[in-house]
Amino acid sequence: MHLEFFQLIDRITDLNIGAKTIAAEAQVPEKNTIFEGHFPGYPLMPGVLLIETMAQASGWLLIALMKFERMPFLGAVKEAKMRGFVSPGETLKIDASIVHEGSGFAMTSAEISVRGQLRCNATLTFRHIPFPNPDLRGHMDAVARRIGFPQEMILHD
């Protein structure tokens, strides 16, 4: 996880277009200024960042399903449940699947587990639009390469 850059997914471990599912991993850093405030003497990964982690995994799944032509943006978070604490240094397994693909929007179901134990889950709604500019598209290309997004799914202009 690169918390400072809001890049919360370290690697995609499985992307199944047919089943419309994704699995990813992320290592919570041992040290970060976030933990100095959340909480002093009892560091915990903030729930909002866990939600964002689930959103980013879902986003990569949507980008893949949309053949890297559109960018999803988080619109709604439903039924988000923080079921257990996540501590510095832990490795997260993130799974997401498609609930619904609408016109210009999509819904996913996502969860995070640590060593097989469910820590949080949510249902997420995204709006998606064509990439608004080449800069964002280029940035997403670079992140995709870093986290092991299947290169054959990246369509180039």
Partner: peptide, 9 residues
């Protein structure tokens, strides 16, 4: 428009 996504769903 956001609520309408739930309706569309």
């Amino acid at each position: 428009s956001l609520d309408f996504l739930d309706i569309a769903f």
